[in-house]
Nucleic acid binder design. Structure first.
Lengths: 199, 199
DNA sequence: CTTGTCGGTTCTCTCTTTGTTCTCTACAGT
DNA sequence: ACTGTAGAGAACAAAGAGAGAACCGACAAG
């Protein structure tokens, strides 16, 4: 993942400063505060932040410039967002919690950590209780292990296989069968880039 | 790998000093700080560092001079001693190398890291290429995964079961059978306390 | 319902900064 | 003299950054 340019970093810092405000700022406001005259130029930067997964894509809505979970500065370690299991949505951890992750186990991009529940990926060496480091992005290559949201309801950890017209999610456990879905029903929320276990 | 020329070493030292900065420096900045007048000359040195695997190749991007993982000195990390596989002694890594390990994955005691070779523990979620964090000690409780030295020759990663008069080493792979030894033949070198994997 | 405004989106055009590749020169040590 | 290291400077290509115009959807006023 590509790191931010200085100007994009400026914008991100500015947006972080705005996080406390009641409304997200409009593009014109940001332009004024950042000394820009053209919304177009600013929007280009925003698009870069969206691509970096730091800002929620705002499909035309007003005052939609919102930071992603992952954009919250990682003082030390990555946010532990919750638990993930087959067949259930991510169960958020109650208190905001962070976990130290070695640089080798994460990417440059925005990452977070989930605790794995269940044994649906056990043949791939991801066991109950393991932590997985997830890079937040909305696309994946075939064969990658992804956090996939089906019908905006069930978040699962599965190996993905994308073919024209069908998305197949493979659990890595002989006891479970792969499931086929229409591509429109599956939203990729992130890709597993690392894994840790404590004994 | 060819060793660095003095000037290349200067550059590397300078870049390490920059690592804490928010943005990577531009070539012009480096030139100024290193007393050079020509970006071209500097770029030649950078290319040498890229060839040495110490700097990420930056395909035309601005501020792209970034150090590779290998070039960032991990003062605080655990030593990566080598690879371990069933049936062979630990194969030492050539150059002294350290790896960052989160506190949650290690114990208070002396620890080191081994890279796993082979699939003899795959049913326990320890796969080929994984790193295991090992606490150095000479005893273990039954059921722990240990680095065991048999006959002072073969170091293996196995789950241990100690009974009066016999030590049984269980691989976690249906393809291999557990092996029984006389307690005198088996020396425990450490116990696995953590595991990490990069995708 | 129509209309106008606001705010997000996309586009093209521009200029500067910065990385990259050349060639040429200098110098030290076999 | 030959080779490897070092540097200068020119020339080029591409990224970064901004300006401004045009477009379009949402929403509120008339």
């Amino acid at each position: 993942m590509r790191s931010l340019t200085p100007r994009q970093q400026d914008l991100l810092d500015y947006l972080r400063g705005c996080a406390a405000e009641e409304h997200a700022p409009t593009l014109d406001t940001i332009c004024r505060d950042m000394g820009l005259r053209s919304r177009g130029s600013l929007h280009k930067h925003i698009r870069a932040l969206v691509a970096a997964g730091l800002v929620e894509p705002m499909g035309g809505q007003h005052r939609g410039v919102r930071l992603t979970q992952a954009a919250i500065p990682d003082e030390d370690g990555l946010p532990l967002l919750g638990r993930i299991a087959a067949g259930r949505p991510i169960e958020a951890v109650t208190h905001d919690s962070r976990i130290q992750v070695p640089a080798a186990l994460r990417t440059q991009g925005p990452c977070y950590v989930l605790e794995v529940r269940g044994d649906s990926m056990s043949d791939d060496g991801i066991l109950d209780g393991d932590w997985v480091v997830v890079e937040q992005r909305d696309h994946a290559r075939n064969g990658e292990v992804v956090v996939a949201l089906v019908d905006d309801e069930e978040a699962t950890l599965k190996r993905i296989e994308q073919r024209p017209g069908v998305v197949r999610l493979h659990p890595a456990n002989a006891a479970y069968a792969p499931l086929d879905y229409h591509p429109g029903r599956v939203r990729i929320q992130g890709v597993v880039v690392g894994q840790m276990r404590r004994y």
